[in-house]
Design a binder for these strands. Structure first.
Lengths: 200, 200
DNA sequence: TAAAAGAATATGCTCATAATATTTCCTCGA
DNA sequence: TCGAGGAAATATTATGAGCATATTCTTTTA
């Protein structure tokens, strides 16, 4: 690594290396030296772009959150809402092998957020945005007659978010869910919520 | 600490101190010295009972898993199945403030199990036992006419397990779920699964 | 009084951060 | 066009704290 580069680019390069390292070795055994090596770069460089290790970790968490948020935001909003919701949540599930890594990283960071206020805020914000989006979608579905009117839409949104994260958690840590069965479980959940017959 | 004590007791005493420390400081910042201090004991004693730190951590994970398993096992099996299932899963949710701590600890350990084969096995075993139990219960419910016959009971069991763990995760890391709303969400899930009207 | 339990101390390694050195690249005067 | 020279970028090495493990010393109990 001998070229000078755009600071923003460098930061994400290093962050990428961080994610790879965490995925491979686990957060606990991830050292600055490892990250630097993974990025093909010296420790000093990492230090230039991230004053402290915590700063790097926080940026890394932010980075993965942003990535999935952007995937979610890119989902086109075309009725029926039921299908939009499924598509949204499928962006969170690790359906592509490439996202498998991200999952372990995500779980590590979420755990870290138990004792890091800043990470906790990041996570909270992401979840809130998701729940807000789902709530809106559900309200739309109610207006369109797709969804029962006397549902507590916000509670439903929070429950769905929790369910999908639960699927992620179990996918990452047990053999209960592979990509296909995760997808199927999501479908089943949403179908049951919207009522099985209508709207397909 | 100057009394000699039953080895098994000592181990759980130390494990208890470990849990307290992890709950307070987070797994990453938990040191043997901390644990010893929390137990009111010397580092040497901790070492006598656990040859290595990993051994201590694994025992700690085992310990929390066993505790909730025992809570689950103690739930009486009296129909209707719907209520049994709710009662079972409520043993996992952090409904009592005392279990809040356990939750952070659990999450830390689950995360650690990403890179520790032994912990992974422990976790897998626990989840499997739970899913097996739920599957059986659901089959019973089908025979009793409480539950739709063409459900894939094992998939349902896995999904419910994931849902509850998702609730735990969100409870621990977001403000979406307190004790009451966790309980309500569980109830709603099970009711929807069993069909809302019958069997209450 | 032996042997087990427990406490206190020592050792050495890993790692984050700090400090120092080197390279790269841009600019500007001739 | 062409180098100096300087500043930013990158690399290298040094420092020191924290911690797990090892070792030794002391107390308890049978």
């Amino acid at each position: 690594m001998t070229q000078h580069a755009d600071p923003e680019t460098r930061r994400t390069q290093v962050a990428e290396a961080l994610l790879a390292t965490v995925a491979e070795r686990g957060l606990a055994r991830t050292t600055l030296t490892d990250v630097a090596a993974a990025a093909g770069v010296s420790v000093g460089l990492v230090q230039r772009y991230f004053r402290t290790k915590d700063e790097l970790l926080r940026f890394g968490f932010d980075y993965v959150c942003r990535r999935t948020q952007e995937r979610v935001r890119r989902v086109p909003i075309v009725p029926p809402v039921r299908e939009v919701v499924v598509a949204l949540m499928e962006q969170i599930l690790p359906l592509e092998p490439e996202r498998e890594n991200e999952l372990g990283v995500w779980l590590s960071f979420v755990q870290a957020s138990l004792t890091d206020r800043e990470m906790a805020a990041t996570h909270q914000a992401g979840v809130t945005e998701l729940i807000d989006g789902l709530t809106e979608a559900f309200e739309g579905a109610q207006r369109a007659g797709e969804l029962d009117l006397d549902l507590d839409v916000r509670a439903e949104a929070a429950a769905l978010a929790a369910f999908v994260d639960g699927l992620c958690l179990h996918h990452a840590t047990t053999s209960s869910f592979d990509a296909a069965s995760s997808r199927a479980a999501l479908r089943a959940y949403v179908d049951r919520m919207f009522g099985r017959g209508e709207g397909r």
